[in-house]
Design a protein around this nucleic acid. Sequence first.
DNA 1: TTGAAAGCGATACCAG
DNA 2: CTGGTATCGCTTTCAA
Lengths: 334, 334
Amino acid sequence: MLPTIRDVARRAGVSIATVSRVMRESEGVRDATRLRVLAAAEELEYTPSQLGRQLAERRHAANGIVFPDLSGPYYAEVVLGYEAVAAELRRSVLILSTHGRSNAEAAVREMAGRCDGLVILGRTVSDTVVQHLAARGTPLVLVARPPIGSVDSVNAENHASAVTLAEHLLSEGVRNLRFVGDPAASPDVAERWAGIQAAFQRSGSGRAPELTTVDELDEASGAAVAAATLEGDDLPDAFVCANDELALGLLGRLDAAGIDVPGDVMVTGWDDVMAARYAGLTTVRQPMRELGATAARLLDELIVGDRTEPRHELLPTELVIRTSSSSTSRKVSK
Amino acid sequence: MLPTIRDVARRAGVSIATVSRVMRESEGVRDATRLRVLAAAEELEYTPSQLGRQLAERRHAANGIVFPDLSGPYYAEVVLGYEAVAAELRRSVLILSTHGRSNAEAAVREMAGRCDGLVILGRTVSDTVVQHLAARGTPLVLVARPPIGSVDSVNAENHASAVTLAEHLLSEGVRNLRFVGDPAASPDVAERWAGIQAAFQRSGSGRAPELTTVDELDEASGAAVAAATLEGDDLPDAFVCANDELALGLLGRLDAAGIDVPGDVMVTGWDDVMAARYAGLTTVRQPMRELGATAARLLDELIVGDRTEPRHELLPTELVIRTSSSSTSRKVSK
DNA sequence: TTGAAAGCGATACCAG
DNA sequence: CTGGTATCGCTTTCAA
C-alpha cells in the first residue's frame, strides 16, 4: 500500500492539514515544521494521491482530445501540437481515437467525465453529443469542424486555398478536373470541393469538375481510384485529391501503369505531409501543429474562465506547387 | 453544478447505495426500484463522477504512455497501436511527450499517479526513474528499450536485421560504409550499429564501417550530413542511416547536388515510414503498431494481476530493398 | 431488497 | 502557525 497523507502526518508528528500545506507549498508553515514533514515524506517516499487531490479540488488538471485516427500524419501532428501546449499549461492529456468504434459517443462521454475540457477533431461525434456536452458546461473546442452553436472552433482556411489551387490548375491548362474525396464525410473536404467548383464556374473555362467519392482518405483508396480510371480509360486533366494520402496512392498506381505525371494527368493533394515532398506532390499546406496548439490555448482560456464569448479561429494555408502539377515549383501563400 | 448521486437518490426516493448499485448494473435491485432510479438519473442527466468512483475503487482505469516526440511517424504509430488495444480493454490513455522538457522525470512521476500502469518508449527517462517506479509497484512496460531488472519489455529485432542489411550491401559491392546516427542516444540505434559492424567484420571484405554522429534523427540532420560530406568530397559507397528521416534528408540533399543514388552512393534507412516508399528508400520495416499493441496487452496482464514473472517480447522486422540500394526491389523477411 | 454509515485521500475553513 | 473536522462523490460492508 502506498503511504497516505495520514502516514506522513503521524510520522512527522503533525496534523494532516499541515502535511497538506507543506505538500502544496502553501505559506504559513514554520520552517522547522516544514522540514520535519518533508523528511517524513521523503522517508516514506510519499507522493500525494492525484485522485484524492482532484476530488477535493474538484478539477482534473487534465484535458482530452478526440480524433478519428492517428494513422495518417495529419492527426498525429495536431495531437502533438496540442500536447506540447497542454504540457506547458501543466495539464495532462487524455487521447481517444474513435476510429471504427461503434460506441464512440459513450467513450467520449466517459472521457468528458475525466477531464476539465476537451478538444474534438473533425467529425468524430455527432452534433447532438457536442451540444449535450456544451450544455452540461464542459469546456469544448472544435477543430477541423464548423462551429456548432457558441462552441469555440479552430479551422484551417479551405475555400480560398481551394480556389487558388483551382486557378493554378486552370492556368496550367486543366479543363477537365476530377475531385477525389467524400465531401459528406468531412466539413473540410466539403469546403475544398466547393472552392474548386466555384473557381471553375467563375473562370468560365473548362467543364464542371466531376466528383469521385471514396470511403477512406487513404492510399489504398487512391490506388483504387487510379485503377478504376485506367480501366475506363477516361483520364481527366487533373485529379484533385482531398488529402495527400489519396493523392500518393493515386500517384503510385499511375506511375506503375506508366502514366506520365504531370504530362498525361496532373495530381494534387492536401495537407503537405512529409511524403508529399518526396513524391513531388502539389498540395495545400495546413498548419497542423498550430491547429492543435491553438485549440489547447483556447480550451485553457475556457477552463480557467478568462473568457466567455466564443472564439473561432481560421488559420492560413499555403499552396505548394511541385512537379505533379507543373514543371516549376513554387509556393503561393494564402 | 452537476448532479451527484445524492440528487438522484433524493429524486428517486432511495438511498445512495441503491443508486450506486443501479449505476454499476450490479445485481440485487428490484426492477421497479431500478426503473425509478434510472428515470431520475435520466431526468437529471446524471453521470457518475469518475473521480468519486476512482477514489472509492482505488483504480484509475487509465494507462499512460511516455514517448520522446510524436513528430516522426514512428512514435505516432506505436501510440496508435497502443491506444487501439487500450480502448478495447476499456482503459483511457494518457500521453506524455518528454521532448525538450527539462522536467521530464517529474512529469512522468506525476503521470504515474494518474494511471494504473505505464508504457515507456525509448530513452525518455533514466533507468533510475524506471527502477523507482517499478519498486513502488507501478506496472511498467518498456518499449524500444532494453530490459531493466524484471520490468517487461517489447522490442523490435535489430541486430539480425542490421546484419542482413549489411550483407545485402556487401553483395551490392559496398566496401566502404558510413553509419549515420547516435548509438549512445538510443539502444535501438546501438544494436543496429553493432550489427552492421559485426557483419562487415565477419565478411572479411570491406573496410571497417565509419560512424557519423548526429544530434537528432530528423531530415535536417540528414541533409547536414550530406552537405558536410559533399564539402569534404569523400563519398562512401553507402550511407546507412539510423532511421528513415535521416536517410530522406540525406537523399534530398544528395539529389539536389546531382549525386546519383544508388550509382554514386547508396542510402538506406530504418522503420519504413510512408515517405520511404515514395523516395525508393531501402529500409528495415518495423512492426510499429504491433509494438504498441503488444505493450498494451502486457501492461494489462500486469495490472489485472494475471502474471508475475516478467516477459520480454522481440518482434520481427523485415528488410525492404528499394532503388536507393539496388536496381531490383524485393523483401527479405527476418 | 434496501439503507445507514464507514471509508477512499486529499483540501480548506474555522478555531485556538 | 497548527489542528480538528467537514467535504468532495462514490463504493462497499453490515444490518435490518
